[in-house]
Nucleic acid binder design. Structure first.
Lengths: 162, 162
DNA sequence: ATATGTGCAAAAGATTTGCAAGATC
DNA sequence: GATCTTGCAAATCTTTTGCACATAT
């Protein structure tokens, strides 16, 4: 269970700067609620939902940010490259994870116990680019999730069948 | 725009047989509603939603199958290998496509116009298996979607910026 | 006969939207 | 001051569930 090292203070500032840049480009205005959500998201260790952000977006005065505001802010955070949407986790809703200043990775999920492993394959990334080019596309992103059963779950299966 | 050739009558029968096998294995019973949904799905050319299946699941007497029944049937169709769930298409809901007797493929989507291209890379499939093995997993499935901008959309962008 | 399947309505979730009040440029 | 933002409530949408009746084994 590798814990993703979090951004330090300087990293947070760079991330906020990236957000402000996008906000400015779009002719929008600075707002503290938006930055509260961004900080909550950037500080989050693993995968999180909108609900999680609502709860953790409290500031010193314990002001929460409403869910609708979080929903309105998310597209900006994605566009600024602070977060990525992920589709791991079975039923439950939509999850996100930090993308800013973090190496890209995809996920391998156990359909038995839900364990999630991160992986990265430069070979796959390369083939993806080739595929895109061959169809005249310029890649802007991708999502790639592998599903399978982990060793532990296969053992468990064997027992219960015995 | 390559149209996926559809299953012929014999193929439909093989698919229904696969469904019946799963149904029997689970100790469930034969039902015509389930087969109506299966047929509607198998006959569908491209990508479709639950709503689409409801509309097209009419039989000779124009009996529709209720959405709740479609929802209850889908897991069986997936398990029987008749369909696959896909995550292409931006906002809109969940889509499915036929998987039975059809070569596996993934999708490349244009974020500008929504065009969807199917691709297949044996090299990627191979690396996926290697990755899974390296983490002690046995693969049961995956979803892989590339996003980018197609040639036409890039041209359009250039014009409007001009 | 008994257990499963289906239609229908209601419930449950997640996300979006309209609006009045508050913040920013 | 004009315009963007936010909180809040209500509206939407998709999917799930409870139940009474229909159907299959």
């Amino acid at each position: 269970m590798k814990k993703p090292h979090s951004l330090d203070e300087a990293g947070l500032q760079r991330a906020l700067a990236a957000l402000r840049r996008v906000v400015r480009e779009k002719g929008l205005r600075a707002s503290s609620a938006r930055e509260r959500v961004a900080l909550a998201a950037l500080r989050y260790g693993g995968h999180f939902t909108v609900e999680d952000l609502v709860r953790r977006s409290k500031d010193e005065r314990l002001e929460e940010t409403h869910a609708s505001t979080v929903y309105r802010t998310l597209p900006l955070l994605l566009e600024a490259g602070l977060l990525e949407e992920i589709r791991v986790h079975r039923d439950e809703g939509t999850f996100y994870e930090r993308a800013f200043e973090r190496e890209h990775h995809d996920h391998l999920v156990c359909v038995g116990c839900g364990a999630v492993v991160e992986f990265h394959s430069e070979e796959i990334e390369e083939v993806q680019r080739e595929v895109a080019v061959s169809f005249g596309f310029v890649l802007t992103g991708h999502s790639h999730e592998l599903r399978g059963t982990c060793t532990a779950c296969r053992e468990r299966g064997r027992e219960s069948r015995a």
